[in-house]
Design a protein around this nucleic acid. Structure first.
Lengths: 184, 184
DNA sequence: CCTTTTCGCTACCATCGGTATCGAAACTGA
DNA sequence: TCAGTTTCGATACCGATGGTAGCGAAAAGG
């Protein structure tokens, strides 16, 4: 039980996280999510692959933390909830336009569909922090779909004219597919 | 050079395409795109993997043809172009809500980012047919981005309020990410 | 200088997309 | 009935990828 301020001895690990994050985004931007091999990310960061796996348990966890680092805190003020929602949409749209972020998002979510462990990782490292931020800004949470994730997608669907009904998986899949078509 | 009506001898191949298509969609729906292994698809279809690879050169080509088969022809009438566009959006939204289709779309497009060969496959088997259908319905093609693919995504972005500017990669990535968030 | 922790390197495993090979099945035509 | 032709199924295999194990070396504190 060492004091919290005491730094343990051993080889320094200073700055490695930031270097790996930058290398990850650059590699994903250059080669796509599937092309961003862990070996290539490690090479781009000038770091051994084992070092990455000592800090993140999987590629998905690395991507999730990398996205949190790239996005930063959601800019909520807490005054007007509707205004906050609109601001959040503009915020994530701008952030995700940065090199590599969009491709990283799409890739990790596609993998998450067939990997329950990855879904839990994403929930813990991506969804929960932003959910907490909105809870603190907006007060106590409602039990219906009013968190950030749902707000963004729900607003998107509402603006598309698919409103009236609660959001269903079909709508989300439709959106993904329509957007994905442009990658052709 | 046999006559067109003459069926070549040998073991029958009747109905295998349809069986494989159905098994592909079901497997993708149940296990996701990454979880839909070629071995699993073959097993679900009751067919040897080599048989699938004798008919489709790659997993991407199988998915592309499977999607074309699942979508069917785009319902264009050619009278009012704006009306056709709106109908096309509703059409693809409904079609892609069917089991497995949305996940197949998202997965194959994510892979296509880092695979030029797959991009060409998708262009040939997915984009070109629908582009031709719209050319025939709307007359001669315009050289600007007025084909179906562009129309769907462009209209989507327009309705989101991101209009005014030409569509850029950042917007598309932002959409993918926003939608993907809901998969958590 | 000694201990402790982390880093890098190599080797390795399981899985997946894709290929090669070969015997068996099934249809056509005589 | 019986070739001849073509496809199907099974197995074995290859390269790449995510992920792990083990070990020696580097760098920090004490």
């Amino acid at each position: 039980m060492t004091p919290a301020s005491a730094r343990p001895p051993g080889r320094p690990r200073a700055g490695i996280d930031a270097v790996v994050f930058a290398a990850t985004l650059k590699t994903v931007h250059d080669l796509g999510y599937a092309g961003a091999t862990m070996d290539r990310i490690a090479a781009a960061a000038g770091v051994a692959k084992t070092t990455i796996y000592r800090r993140w348990p999987s590629k998905g966890a690395l991507i999730a933390d990398c996205l949190v680092d790239a996005l930063g805190p959601v800019p909520v003020r807490g005054a007007d909830r509707a205004e906050d929602m609109a601001a959040a949409i503009r915020w994530i749209a701008a952030k995700i336009g940065e090199p590599g972020v969009g491709a990283a998002f799409a890739g990790v979510f596609v993998d998450a569909v067939s990997d329950p462990g990855l879904r839990e990782v994403l929930s813990t490292r991506l969804q929960d922090p932003y959910r907490r931020a909105l809870e603190e800004a907006w007060g106590e949470p409602e039990h219906r779909v009013l968190f950030f994730i749902d707000v963004v997608v729900g607003t998107l669907l509402h603006r598309m004219g698919m409103t009236g009904e609660p959001m269903v998986e079909a709508d989300v899949n439709a959106l993904i597919a329509m957007v994905g078509l442009h990658f052709i």
